[in-house]
Nucleic acid binder design. Sequence first.
DNA 1: TCAAAAGTGTTGGAGTTACACCCATGA
DNA 2: TCATGGGTGTAACTCCAACACTTTTGA
Lengths: 225, 225
Amino acid sequence: MGNQKIRLTVDAVVFGYEDGIISVLLIKRKYEPYKGKWAIPGGFILENESLKKAVERELQEETGIKISYLEQLYTFGKPDRDPRGRIVSIAYFGLVRPNVFSISASTDAEEVQWFNIDDLPKLSFDHKEILNVATQRLRGKITYEPIGFELLDKKFPFSDLEKLYTTLLGRKIDRRNFRKKIISLNVLDELEEKISKGSGRPANLFKFNQERYFHLKEKGIIFEI
Amino acid sequence: MGNQKIRLTVDAVVFGYEDGIISVLLIKRKYEPYKGKWAIPGGFILENESLKKAVERELQEETGIKISYLEQLYTFGKPDRDPRGRIVSIAYFGLVRPNVFSISASTDAEEVQWFNIDDLPKLSFDHKEILNVATQRLRGKITYEPIGFELLDKKFPFSDLEKLYTTLLGRKIDRRNFRKKIISLNVLDELEEKISKGSGRPANLFKFNQERYFHLKEKGIIFEI
DNA sequence: TCAAAAGTGTTGGAGTTACACCCATGA
DNA sequence: TCATGGGTGTAACTCCAACACTTTTGA
């Protein structure tokens, strides 16, 4: 009892968003099994590090990315999910802002790349299933907590937030009603600055008010768009 | 790499409900560490069983209970959470109906007992924290999915459901409005039978319509009481 | 001056809350 | 007949959805 040969890994599904496209961060595996195939970044947990630390370290080693939000997703443990033996994986869910999209393969990965979630390559292990759970979570999250802070740039025009929701929900939303609802949450600060995107009327920039944003998140919120 | 000395356990927080009281199932530990102390049931995962199977087996071995609902809760992995070394635990969340309250300590437990969640003994390991997460989940669940099927008897008077919600929410709810809302969900079938609880007008019995209940659960629902 | 994106209010309807009295039974 | 819990309807209000034109800029 307790003399197991089970090993433990962490994996991280990291989402990024820019210009109406949601992307996932994948690596091309450097070693067997599934050498040369695409996979979610992750790896074995060291004996004295916490789970979250393990994820952060693996992400750093494999992709060089700096994450702005990380939460535990689900633990996958089917006995045959890994050809190397019994390996249980604790999957995490991460979000990054576009300005930290800069990535670079390193130690354990041959290549790192952002993939549009609607155009993914075949994945290793049971990573397709993990990604499905993560995608569901992402879509689910926006209906019960404000999201955006972790995915958008620090300063952004309102239309970026609107486009993010449109993309995640997969349908059009009414601009006026959406703005009213978001404004009423009282988590945005309107800045003096404007931004011009080539053509059209320049947009005011907003930023999230950290304090009120996290307060709202903690309190929990249910809002339908 | 991958030559770990990390071991894996499962733990289960099992809730029961009867007569306005929410209880948790605890065991008194038979062996060190924390011998003679109360703890959440659980134990080591065998090498060829799935996580869920492991939980079910441990619950059977330690408490003899038959569970009516079981879902994964969260994985706890702080390096120092167990004095025996690095042990990561995958916690599950379970619900049982009152008529299966019959429990019996066996192999690994010296004693099994239901505890009112408002009157708990000191717990072993980080089980207090696990229980907190589970309690939060329990309370959270009732606002975004119908619950009750897994906690109430197969046939029950409407007042039982009402009392369950009152208890979980920790506040009074309007009887008429509550009934209207639940009825409008269309998951209850009214039976011909009545039940008399000693004094007062006898109540009609209801049962959940399995099909519509699970359909609603899958679809996801947000309803405020 | 035209094209492109940003910004802005009002109204009708649906759904929710608030609220109090009668009913059926056992003692 | 009284005490106990069960069962029911309506009116006011709040919140949400639907809907289209004006403003500001760059080309």
